[in-house]
Write a protein that binds this DNA or RNA. Structure first.
Lengths: 342, 342
DNA sequence: TTTAGCACTCGCTAGAGATGAGTGCTAACG
DNA sequence: CGTTAGCACTCATCTCTAGCGAGTGCTAAA
């Protein structure tokens, strides 16, 4: 639909605006090596591109900036995926060279390295519970009426909650409960735990243990909290402060509030299709990031999507670089995780 | 050393500046009810107070602002500790009413409520390892050569690390190791674990288990990392953004970097004497917060200092309110924690 | 079809008053 | 003699204006 020349000019404008954050004029484009036309010609094309909705003009006598549609076209058709710089490769290599880490720590670490390399804010979502199974359950008494409940998942994630024990349940009975639970529930996907608890385990507990109902309630409290099994890792939050589009502090505030509110954040980053995705501006669900872009990559285990890792920045993002980085990282992450004992 | 009138005027100026963040003029003070002097008289006293170093003047034709020395005098001699508002009391009451929480969660929760009530940034340091003892140690195999090591402390803190198991150590042996460790180390203060590991436990392990040296190294790796046993809780970090003294983003940056760097933060907040402490401006060790004030309160268990909870804001802080709040919270925290099974 | 030329727009900046909050000093007052 | 009214002075801040310049759209020539 766009002519070759229009695409060339649009790409030049987006590239330029991404690095300068200032409206781009026709002369600026003309002076670049790769577009061999005079400012006047470029102005004409710019006017057309604006009419088509790919560019915008902040005011009459300013240059053009890409519109949301412009960025979308750029990402879909114009972005050049080339190779990473030597330094970037080195950082990533050393990251995956470290050996002893839980699955979640790998993800967390990858996200923090990405934040440092890009100067954007990185958001990562820990492994999901469809393919994550229960490895071990434990109840450690702290006193007569309290205990720490510990859940270990197949991804190496450890979660703990302090619970109060019903009056009159002895330590022996607690042990019995733990044994029954481990026997019945180990290997079960987290998402099925709650239902299994009532069917399989319920009968068994009723048979051997007093206060079975209370105990089941207690265990459900620990195991059934589906969202708490997922962890969100943020890094480079302060990078947001230095983007010129957010020099106005009030704009940061709404974004910040979103970042501090884990459930909303899970929704934002959890609801993306697998593969590498780019959400530009208002394509994002949450209006707090309506002038941000979110680029996400999912990581998988045995082909099953497990979690997401993403970078959040202004719509004027370095799409090419970020896409390259995420591409490499998510591939390496997949290789790494599938080598993981599971 | 200061006359009664000077103290009255100094208090009025500090109070006013704390709430307005603007240099305070003589007329402003005169118009307040509590100082019954004309602007001219107050001007004379102000000039004296400035000469004594309690006040500063941003420029000749502006009002006065308190100097660091002025704040110090205010905090030491002039601040009025009165009672909390009904709303504040209610928030705190409901907080301590919640029952089932690990010790650390109580501290964390208290810190987050304080941040909300004050609009400052709160920093809390989890229980310290002198009086914290080991409750339970566990090694759960994930595969042939990896396992999750779990450490549960007497405060209900659960910590975990993924470790790699030396080749040729069987599951039975792992269990034996765990049993020996729990028999020998349960109840030992965390800080002594490392030495005990080599004396008491070392011999025992050598006797019953193969690869004892490797296993000890591994366990030391889990247990001996003294700083990782302490957790730092931050909340209300974004409150910093709205203090007029930090409207310049670069000033935030250095503070932020400090907040993101846990070890430095532990140093800043961990090195305070017990009781309630006020660190004004350059009294703080770290220069990133040289124009901040840090008010801290320690909490104790059986009289032993356990950890710290603090609020960070501009030197122009609402000292009276924060001191009141911290006073009440730290007392309640002590009561609450000492009721805790330990 | 491309480009040079030109008039026009409009945000940004610098400088000039004007404003007003605040001071220090002096002299008068109770 | 302490207190206060009065007054000249300072200086940050606001407003207004003029000029600059980056950029545009249009027209006409190559």
């Amino acid at each position: 639909m766009l002519s070759e020349r229009q695409r060339l000019i649009l790409a030049a404008i987006v590239d330029d605006y991404i690095s300068s954050a200032e409206p781009v004029g026709s002369r600026t484009i003309s002076k670049r090596g790769d577009v061999g036309y005079s400012p006047a010609t470029i102005r004409n094309e710019m006017a057309d591109l604006e009419e088509l909705g790919f560019l915008e003009q902040p005011h009459t006598s300013a240059g053009r900036i890409p519109s949301q549609k412009g960025y979308r076209y750029y990402v879909d058709h114009l972005v050049r995926l080339d190779t990473l710089s030597a330094e970037e490769m080195k950082r990533l290599k050393t990251m995956f060279a470290e050996k002893i880490m839980a699955m979640e720590q790998v993800v967390q670490h990858a996200s923090s390295v990405l934040a440092q390399l890009t100067n954007y804010t990185s958001i990562a979502l820990g492994p999901e519970m469809f393919s994550t199974t229960l490895r071990h359950f434990q109840l450690l008494p702290l006193s007569d009426d309290t205990a720490v409940a510990i859940v270990v998942t197949s991804t190496g994630h450890v979660e703990n909650k302090t619970v109060s024990i019903p009056q009159g349940v002895s330590r022996e009975e607690l042990e019995k409960v733990v044994n029954i639970l481990n026997a019945k529930l180990a290997g079960i996907p987290l998402i099925q735990l709650r239902s299994q608890l009532y069917t399989e385990v319920g009968a068994e507990l009723n048979k051997y243990v007093s206060h079975a109902q209370e105990m089941i309630g207690l265990i459900e409290h620990v195991v059934g909290d589906t969202d708490s099994h997922r962890e969100v890792y943020l890094s480079g939050t302060s990078n947001m402060l230095f983007q010129p589009e957010f020099k106005d502090i009030d704009k940061i505030k709404t974004i910040w509030d979103l970042l501090e509110e884990t459930p909303a954040l899970i929704k934002v980053i959890g609801d993306v299709p697998s593969g590498i995705q780019v959400r530009i501006g208002q394509e994002n669900e949450h209006e707090a990031i309506a002038n941000c872009s979110l680029i996400t990559a999912t990581y998988t285990l045995d082909g099953q999507p497990l979690g997401t890792i993403g970078l959040l920045g202004p719509t004027r993002m370095e799409y090419a670089r970020v896409l390259n980085l995420l591409n490499v990282v998510s591939k390496q992450l997949n290789v790494f995780l599938n080598r993981w004992p599971h």
